[in-house]
Simulated scan of single mutants.
Amino acid sequence: MSFIQSISAALTPLGLIWTLLIISIATFLHELAHYALARWQGVRVNSFSIGMGPIIFKRLWRGTEWRLSLLPIGGYVEIDGMAPEEVRGNEGEVSYRQASKGFAALPALGKIAVLFAGPLMNLLLAIGLMTLSFSSQGIPAPDRARIESVQPNSRAQTLGFQTGDVISAIDGQDIPDTVQVDGKTVTGWENLRNVLGTPGPHTFTVERAGESRNVTFDWTPTVAGKRQLLGIGYGPDIVPAGVGTAFQTSLTTTAQAVPQVLKAFGNLFGRFLTLNFSQDENVTGPIGTTEIVGRAATVGPWALVQIATLLNLSLAFFNLIPIPGLDGGRILLVLVGVVRRRPLSFSQEQAINVAGFAFVILLMTFVVVRDVSRFF
């Protein structure tokens, strides 16, 4: 298959449509939060665009020019006093200076509130989507594996395993919530693959229709150099949950995701600085994201909800990274001004923002190139 054919296979129309829709909604709500916190503090918002690039429709409403732009990728909001002011001299020459009104005139806490509102909105949206998913679909139990399929004429069928069986214990020990495998933390049900990689007798405690039974068998994971399969498809057992429990689980899941996301971003920065283009399953580019969304769309709406949750979490955490040009970087500059008891000069802030913006552009280019390179 040629490079172009490989890209076309990954970028399916269904995947493209859903990816653009999910990212557009996430970005719109992100920018809307910036807008709301600015207006709440009396700061004028000059424009609000849905999409990027050439403007195809605009309307003035409540002092803001609302725009619909041609490219359906993200959007932006222009808050008065956030960009430098233009100054025209007597000879018509144009220069710029630090803004002195609007956003620039807000106290430090007011500025941080405006900047933090966007990532917070994405974080709240992710928690809301998780709560909706958990309360509607149930909560995955990390310490129980549910058999989702049994292959015909397989060893599992011979042993009497059935679809819907729940494995609650292995070799007389309850399945733990988490297990350390090769330096990584995996849930107990995910560790079933490693158990089946260990030769010898095994006993699975299986629950079916409210009753428990033990299934004991001798297992040889490899025969004549060929890997043996038990013949089951499995996933976590699903426990029904009310809204309160679902919300609490969403908060816990979000807290547990923080170190994993930070580790993934740290790994990405390390690969970027060393120009390591090898693939990383924890961070993917636009093509990989579209490919994943396309597969999720074929599974069903709840799979799309899970993808939207992950994208909003990623957008929230990424924007809070203290790199100038991102919300986190702008917050950092505000805090530096508080510590210094005076804001940075116009030239200092401009130089930092330009450097930060260039870094972000280079990082995004690296991610895209690495994403494309897997098709060669």
Rank of each mutant, 00 (worst) to 15 (best):
H34S: 05
G356C: 14
T249A: 14
I170A: 07
F346G: 00
A10H: 13
F57R: 12
E85G: 03
A26Q: 11
P286M: 07
I307A: 09
R342M: 01
G197R: 12
P54N: 02
E291Q: 15
V206A: 03
W18T: 12
G75N: 08
A241D: 00
R295Y: 10
V261C: 06
L14I: 14
M52P: 07
L275W: 13
L251S: 13
P286E: 06
L159N: 12
N191C: 07
G294V: 06
N191E: 02
G188R: 00
G225D: 14
L326G: 14
G160D: 09
A308V: 06
M82P: 05
G75A: 12
Q306G: 10
M121G: 07
V243Q: 04
L32R: 08
A358T: 11
L106F: 01
L29E: 01
R39W: 00
R146W: 04
F204A: 08
S135D: 03
V43E: 03
T222C: 10
R340W: 08
E207F: 04
K111F: 00
R39Y: 01
A83M: 15
L37A: 13
F272I: 03
T249S: 15
T309K: 13
P324M: 14
V334R: 15
A113R: 08
I167F: 09
Q348Y: 03
G231I: 03
G53F: 00
L115H: 01
F204Q: 10
V195E: 06
F161W: 12
N312P: 10
I17L: 15
V239W: 10
T252L: 07
G164F: 08
V299E: 13
M1R: 15
I56M: 10
T27M: 07
S135E: 04
P84V: 02
V243P: 10
A241I: 07
S24R: 11
L344E: 10
P152R: 06
V258N: 01
E31S: 04
V45E: 05
V223L: 09
Q180M: 14
P176Y: 11
V239K: 15
V354A: 14
L159K: 04
S136E: 11
A255S: 14
D143V: 04
F359I: 14
P221W: 03
E91K: 15
V369M: 05
M364W: 11
I73F: 14
N353S: 10
A209I: 05
T249L: 08
I175E: 10
L333C: 08
E349I: 00
R213G: 04
G244T: 13
I112K: 15
